[in-house]
Amino acid sequence: MTSGSLTHLQSLEAESIEILREVAASFERPVMMYSIGKDSSVLLHLARKAFFPSKIPFPLLHVDTTWKFREMIAFRDRMAEQFGFDLITHTNADGVRDNINPFDHGSSRYTDIMKTAALRQALNAGRYDAAIGGARRDEEKSRAKERIFSHRNESHAWDPKNQRPELWRVFNTRLNPGESMRVFPISNWTELDVWTYIYAEGIELPSLYYAKRRPVVERSGTLIMVDDDRMPLAKGEVPREELVRFRTLGCYPLTGAMRSSAASLPEIIMEMQASRTSEREGRLIDSDSVGSMEKKKQEGYF
């Protein structure tokens, strides 16, 4: 409801902090998903605020597909060092053994094994009963339908037709054995809110978000950055330097860059205001089919 004297961003921040505290107070083994992107960075910042002067009372989990941008990994480790949080990383060992990669196995199989299955493995191994994520309702149609405290059954599946009613700020955090909760503290933020908050709070992001000359190749209309020499190049294909930045960060072979000269937050925000495409467009896994996100979530994708 309206909270008279707070600005829009202040009330969003307070709401998220309240949700994070509710998780810490109600669950036995919470964990926070840390994907190193801008939403995760905001989440991390909010978690530090929520529990100050205590340290964040739960670990941060990074599912490492082994195909992340190199800079992301370095950034992740530096943040853990700087803020002293408990970092857990998990990689699907079976996938590594079978050398599963986005080039030979296709984006959807690769994602199934190195992301979805890996996440399930990590959550089962840690016996986490609540996993906090940085998803927002404005990202995608099926996310717009999801509760803040989103119930998952024993196999991590979401039942979109049977969600628990969620009234006021009274969250039902009760679980039966084996069940778990996904919690989305920044559900009500928009992409613009995230950027303005990052600007207002001076939150550090990986430099991949800012325009720089980077080596890229063009694959079916998408610019892919050649981040290391594992990237197979077609005969005669030569990476060229272009001034690009990323709107979202993920696995480098699956993350499209955009041509842009926006090298600072104000420039990015201005560019975003004029943009006519959605941020998910840069994520190759979502563009497969209408309803693909909903399907992935039912299978246990975040």
Partner: peptide
Amino acid sequence: LLVDGLAAEREQGITIDVAYRF
């Protein structure tokens, strides 16, 4: 179709759960 984000909703042409839009 912009708001009815669940597959079941689009199939049946009705809204089943709340969608939050901004």
